[in-house]
């Protein structure tokens, strides 16, 4: 295995472009090193992107949107008060990934590019409308987060391409987001089901909504029927029931060591309701704690 720590994304891209065999980018390393230790993937080329300028920066742009460097850790996001105020669902989703120790290393970009349908931050990013900047030999392009994973362990990134920034939209007024996941313990597990809701209100009425489900299909889902179930409502019981039904109907899960088809389908509906209530309360300006202490 060859280890490189390039000083720019262009250099990183060129290294990857010209490498033979298996190439991996190293940001937080919390997936790459696990795969290495377990002999699942031993890359021929490992490109550490943490020496690139600006990769640890969290920047709020003039229009209120956010740009996060690709090596920003979960812990750095959680410690960032105004990012947490704007996008509590995204920040909490990232915070749910692994332990305190893992939070010291793990990144949104890594969570996304690992390609796991159960990645906690991905539904939250999809619901939030987050995009990533992808840099390759031909320059950079902006891609919706939902278009990066193409199946378990697979992404749409071409050889020589890598994510070079995470772009979170401006939050705007009267809006809130939330992410909830189901795990059998209180910590340390991979999501059995994950649900993210981002919505905007006009008065008491939901005017915009995006609902995303994780761990219930080969990739994270953005479910328009879920959004439709609550848009125009005040999140009354009927709307919540419709939301739950739409979430369950959208599931296309598998039975595995972490849960059954039936369980995932049922719990997706339960969590959709609970997450929507939290997002709604946040849009009303209330401070609501998420799942995490």
């Amino acid at each position: 295995m060859n280890y490189h720590s390039p000083a720019s994304f262009a250099e990183a891209s060129a290294l990857a472009e010209n490498a033979d065999g298996v190439t991996r980018f190293l940001a937080g390393g919390t997936d790459v090193l696990v795969q290495l230790r377990a002999d699942i993937v031993t890359p021929d080329t490992l490109i550490d992107i943490k020496k690139i300028d600006g990769v640890s920066d969290i920047t709020q742009n003039d229009d209120g949107s956010w740009t996060l460097g690709v090596a920003v850790t979960g812990a750095e996001m959680t410690e960032h008060a105004s990012l947490s105020r704007d996008w509590p669902g995204v920040v909490e989703a990232m915070d749910l990934v692994g332990s305190t120790q893992v939070q010291g290393r793990a990144t949104l970009t890594g969570n996304l590019c690992n390609g796991s349908p159960a990645a906690d931050s991905v539904p939250a990013m999809v619901a939030a409308g987050v995009t990533v900047t992808v840099t390759g030999a031909d320059g950079s392009r902006e891609v919706a987060v939902g278009d990066i994973p193409t199946g378990p362990g697979r992404t749409s990134l071409a050889k020589g391409e890598l994510v070079s920034a995470v772009n979170i939209p401006a939050r705007g007024d009267n809006a809130g987001d939330a992410y909830l996941r189901f795990i059998p313990r209180t910590e340390m597990d991979i999501a059995v089901v994950g649900v993210a809701v981002s919505l905007r209100l006009d008065g008491d009425t939901v005017t915009e909504a995006r609902v995303s489900l994780g761990a219930v299909a080969p990739t994270v889902l953005l479910v328009q029927e879920c959004a439709d179930a609550i848009i125009g409502s005040t999140l009354d019981d009927a709307a919540l029931d419709a939301l739950a039904a739409a979430a369950s109907a959208a599931c296309n899960p598998i039975t595995d060591k972490r849960g059954t088809v039936e369980f995932r389908t049922d719990v997706a509906g339960v969590l959709a309701k609970r997450a929507a209530k939290i997002a709604y309360a946040r849009a009303k300006g209330e401070t609501v704690k998420g799942d995490h202490a």
Partner: peptide
């Protein structure tokens, strides 16, 4: 054996 790691062999953690 499908769960030969502590991630999926779930022993109680402090918050449990």
């Amino acid at each position: 054996l499908q769960n030969a790691v502590f991630l999926d062999y779930r022993i109680p953690v402090a918050s449990d």
